[in-house]
Amino acid sequence: MTLMARELKASYAFVERNFHLTKRYWGWEVAWLVYSVAGALAISLIGRSEGSNRLLLVLVIGAIFWNFLSLVFEFIAETVQWERWEGTLEYTLMAPVRRYAQLLGSAVYAIVYGLIHTAVVLGVLALFFQLDLSHANFATVLTFIGLGSMSFIGIGIAAAVLPLMYVERGAQMVFVIQSVLLLVSGVYYPITVLPGWMQVIAHVSPATYVIDGVRRGVIEGTPISQLVGDIWPLVLMGIILIPLGMWTFGRAERYAKRTGKLKRVG
């Protein structure tokens, strides 16, 4: 067995394990779907109350695709927290698996899971609002989802170390990151309404470009070729954030092993 095949097999261990977990916690998955649909509907209804079809679409897209990005982010950011809660963290970290193989497996599962989840929410909202998606450019949508996922995986990996380093409060910090990204990324409003300094932050948030690109793809049917201005920052951020996330994770793992933060009972 070549090294590559062995690493891929290890990655698959995480995909399969997460799939089994999703299956076993299916009640929770249903609840989560209901929660996502309700949240997206509640925000989108503002558009209807204003009688603006365009605002409705802007909000629907913001809600749905923010939901996707935060799912991917959370899923990866919570891998450590989850395993600590189950008590399997030491077991997993002791296995002869390279960290990138583990994180690749988690990332693949997160994206597939996020896509399915998002498709359901999108379907429900499309029915509810009788949305006309006939001139949407799905190639554009998929491109932005794919590129955006890369950046969010990178941030997610970096955020996953928080529970490693701050055993009690780490998980809450993950939510803080999420809410700041939501605030600055123009998910429900154009970033031009933000104060200047916040707009600066908006430009380094990958979500800003993803939501903008997806909106243009869905509402205006804009092809990718006309959205280069949104694409290159995403490519750049993906290239920077994933290795940065991996590096951070490696550092944090070593720190945890040095200070005994993985676990202390037994």
């Binding site: 394990r17 089994h20 977990l21 076993r24 916690y25 189950e86 008590g87 399997t88 963290l89 030491e90 077991y91 002791m94 009972v265 037994g266």
Partner: peptide, 12 residues
């Protein structure tokens, strides 16, 4: 390694 507490995914 086998630890005192059985480290498993309990729902699995």
């Amino acid at each position: 390694r086998v630890s005192v507490d059985a480290a498993f995914f309990k729902k699995l």
